Simulated assay, not measured.
Amino acid sequence: MEERLKELRQVMKKKVFNQLEFTDQLKNSIHTEIRKQVESDEYVYLSVLQLLVQEKTGVVLITYLRSRGIKRFEENEGLLYSLLHRLEVNGLLVSKWEENEAKLYSLTDKGQKILRKAEKKYAVKQSYLKEILEV
């Protein structure tokens, strides 16, 4: 796969983009916009799973997600609880109530296995994206 991407990049340089010129300012703005799209669904799920390796409440989880730049749940926290419920139904999370009526979430063994696979896949994907962006 990596070799095919390199070949595609070379062909595109020769045929597709040979008449286009990008200023450094334009390149930087394009790279900035791509980085802003970090909040993809895949990244959000991966972040939630990573953060729930240790037990957390939904409120604490939102704080940590915000620190990672994920602002999707700020206006509508219910979206996070829907996502957590979906992950729990699929067997990736387990929840329990504390005495002070706070619900705690953590990964199951299945969730940890999925997390490891997702981290490997995401790392490979990021390396391909980085290689493509390095013009």
Rank of each mutant, 00 (worst) to 15 (best):
residue 88 E to A: 06
residue 38 V to H: 13
residue 41 D to R: 09
residue 71 K to A: 04
residue 11 V to G: 00
residue 57 T to P: 05
residue 34 I to S: 01
residue 28 N to W: 08
residue 89 V to G: 00
residue 63 T to I: 12
residue 115 L to Y: 11
residue 59 V to C: 00
residue 116 R to T: 07
residue 5 L to E: 09
residue 9 R to M: 08
residue 46 L to S: 05
residue 83 L to S: 07
residue 121 K to L: 07
residue 97 W to L: 14
residue 102 A to M: 12
residue 28 N to A: 11
residue 54 Q to C: 01
residue 64 Y to F: 09
residue 1 M to H: 14
residue 13 K to A: 03
residue 96 K to S: 06
residue 76 N to W: 02
residue 117 K to S: 07
residue 109 D to F: 05
residue 10 Q to P: 03
residue 99 E to W: 08
residue 82 S to L: 12
residue 22 F to Y: 08
residue 79 L to T: 04
residue 106 S to Q: 13
residue 112 Q to N: 11
residue 41 D to V: 08
residue 126 Q to M: 12
residue 106 S to G: 01
residue 19 Q to W: 09
residue 30 I to C: 07
residue 95 S to E: 11
residue 33 E to W: 06
residue 52 L to C: 02
residue 95 S to F: 02
residue 24 D to T: 08
residue 13 K to Q: 11
residue 98 E to D: 11
residue 37 Q to N: 09
residue 15 K to N: 12
residue 60 V to S: 07
residue 41 D to W: 08
residue 95 S to P: 05
residue 9 R to S: 09
residue 19 Q to E: 10
residue 130 K to Q: 15
residue 2 E to D: 13
residue 73 F to R: 03
residue 129 L to H: 07
residue 111 G to N: 06
residue 128 Y to R: 13
residue 88 E to I: 00
residue 37 Q to V: 05
residue 7 E to K: 15
residue 39 E to W: 06
residue 2 E to K: 11
residue 75 E to V: 03
residue 135 V to I: 11
residue 12 M to Q: 10
residue 18 N to H: 13
residue 56 K to A: 15
residue 43 Y to L: 03
residue 46 L to I: 06
residue 114 I to F: 04
residue 125 K to E: 15
residue 68 R to P: 05
residue 32 T to C: 08
residue 76 N to D: 15
residue 41 D to K: 12
residue 102 A to D: 15
residue 6 K to T: 02
residue 78 G to C: 00
residue 90 N to Y: 12
residue 26 L to F: 06
residue 43 Y to M: 11
residue 7 E to F: 10
residue 21 E to Q: 10
residue 79 L to V: 07
residue 118 A to I: 05
residue 109 D to M: 09
residue 37 Q to F: 09
residue 102 A to C: 05
residue 9 R to C: 00
residue 14 K to C: 04
residue 100 N to V: 06
residue 39 E to M: 05
residue 76 N to V: 10
residue 133 L to P: 01
residue 38 V to A: 05
residue 32 T to Y: 11
residue 51 L to D: 07
residue 90 N to E: 15
residue 10 Q to R: 14
residue 128 Y to W: 15
residue 133 L to V: 00
residue 91 G to T: 01
residue 109 D to T: 10
residue 114 I to S: 02
residue 6 K to Y: 10
residue 115 L to W: 08
residue 125 K to I: 06
residue 56 K to V: 10
residue 64 Y to K: 14
residue 1 M to G: 14
residue 133 L to G: 02
residue 40 S to L: 08
residue 48 V to E: 04
residue 78 G to A: 02
residue 47 S to R: 09
residue 73 F to V: 00
residue 59 V to I: 09
residue 133 L to A: 00
residue 117 K to A: 06
residue 40 S to F: 05
residue 69 G to R: 08
residue 87 L to E: 08
residue 65 L to Q: 03
residue 124 V to G: 01
residue 85 H to F: 04
residue 80 L to S: 03
residue 9 R to D: 10
residue 30 I to K: 02
residue 93 L to W: 00
residue 99 E to G: 12
residue 78 G to N: 11
residue 18 N to Q: 12
residue 2 E to C: 04
residue 116 R to D: 14
residue 86 R to Y: 13
residue 74 E to N: 13
residue 32 T to R: 15
residue 76 N to I: 09
residue 81 Y to A: 00
